[in-house]
Design a protein around this nucleic acid. Structure first.
Lengths: 113, 113
DNA sequence: TTGACATATTCCTATATCGGTATATATTGC
DNA sequence: GCAATATATACCGATATAGGAATATGTCAA
């Protein structure tokens, strides 16, 4: 059994580097497919296919404008990923805490000497 | 060409639901493989294989203790994922902002009437 | 209507899984 | 050393890709 279809799971969809690049590129503003092709230097069919996956999983939105299709990132769909990763936040904030404490301890030592 | 190997990319490794479950389970404390098997109701070989992927990509750490292997989540390795998702944070914070503003506007309206 | 442009879809191939079963490799206690 | 326990690895089958090339679909402009 292979992995769950990318079109089913945002985590999975984002597992592909190219798709992350596309999402970042489409975060700022609407872009047409051709812009992605040029900017990210990918084949047009490849871009269309990635966009389909992202659309199916709700990570991007589209609207037609004449001959063009304008895509943009649906940032809110990334929130579940953010929330999940955030449950591990203590791992690095504690790390910073420790670094900070050590620095302070050192500063105190310096004063003593 | 299939997707980049899961052992190469933490995003990809985390694209698998079972592995996310394992990571969450191993976040609190060290656990031996058998515990994961029982808790998450997975076949032992399956767990070992997922753990190998997670190990290869640095998402978990191991140490041997007698006959057991003790695994724990390396939370810091999740930080890059957190950082990436966080670049989209404005999408939902702005959303909240708007909700808040609308609520305030409504409150003001009520006062007026 | 026709041609040009923009995007989507289809077909093909190679490959990376995932789960399951069987087996191999520790490590401990007797 | 040997049985028992814990974990890892090997092998198999089914399937979901990802990219490339070719083609289909859709839309505008003349």
């Amino acid at each position: 059994m292979p992995r769950a279809a990318a079109t089913t799971d945002a985590f999975n969809a984002v597992g592909e580097l190219r798709r992350r690049e596309i999402l970042s590129y489409l975060a700022d503003r609407e872009r047409q497919v051709g812009d992605i092709v040029v900017k990210l230097r990918m084949e047009q069919p490849s871009v269309s296919k990635h966009l389909k996956v992202l659309r199916d999983v709700g990570l991007v939105r589209v609207r037609r404008s004449g001959r063009h299709m304008l895509y943009r990132t649906n940032g809110e769909a990334i929130r579940p990923l953010y929330d999940w990763t955030k449950t591990f936040e203590r791992f690095w904030t504690h790390q910073l805490q420790r670094v900070k404490e050590r620095a302070e301890a050192k500063a105190t030592d310096s004063k003593k000497t």
